[in-house]
Amino acid sequence: MASLSARAQRRTAAMLLAPFFVLFSAVTVAPLLYAGWMSLFTTRTSGLGFGGTEEVFAGLDNYVRALSDPAFRDGFITIAAYVAIYIPVMIGGALALALLLDSALVKARAFFQLALFLPHAVPGLIAALIWVYLYTPGLSPVIGFLSAGGLDISFLSADNAVFSAANIAVWEWIGYNMVIFYAALQAVPGETLDAAKIDGAGGIRTALSIKVPMIRPAIALSVLFTVIGSVQLFTEPKVIYSASSSIGSSWTPNMYVQAAAFTHNDFGLAAAASLLIALFAAVLSFLVTRFSRSRSQA
């Protein structure tokens, strides 16, 4: 009897899990395998090239070419610079806003929550288009205003693009992460806060010594998602590139992949480079998880 119900239970579990695995294999595993397959081939022709093309087995040549291409490697340096600016500003800002909302100081809490979250409801592409409009000289009222005040800033130049891209992303994501932190703060037990108050801790001390340590898992999770998202940085710089090409067509690794596939018609290289990015993101998320776990256990 017991074994029968266990079997029935297993069958139900399988039935409930099946949709996930079907979709997972169709839209994640299968494309990964296909990309892996594609990354082993390259398209060749001969002479002037008008006699047709053929797919030739290339072994690991596409991987070697990606890794030895400075344009691909520089993409990761771009990401590092972007992360160094973006994560402290965005996570720090979201945390500060969440703590402010959680404190007794704020009136109209629901309004601010909604207002800060609203930019996240704008799709990334639209957000990037709006910001690029504000960044384009001759069109932007902001630049006109600044240069009337004697300040000439080129938001789209290669040197400033990291800030410009990070700025768009902060605007998009700060409210979202603030909501996560705020929700985590609601779970901080009232008696702990009361105890802190009785011990004489002020608002700021309570925030930094009680609240922040207690929501550390939420912060770690946000950092993890943000880092992985940053490795895939594409939309914002792509739109910036369309307004000014000074950042180059391979500014981030994902832009490199897109250019390889659709500008250079080199699908093998594009597949190899995407798999390298996926590998990099996997290693990075492993490290971030390890790091934050050991920190929270300490």
Partner: peptide
């Protein structure tokens, strides 16, 4: 040429830097 995607991109990526 036979690889104008590459040729053009190589030029476009550098053009803004000329004026700078």
């Amino acid at each position: 040429g036979p690889v104008m995607g590459t040729t053009n991109t190589a030029i476009i990526d550098q053009l803004p830097k000329v004026a700078e």
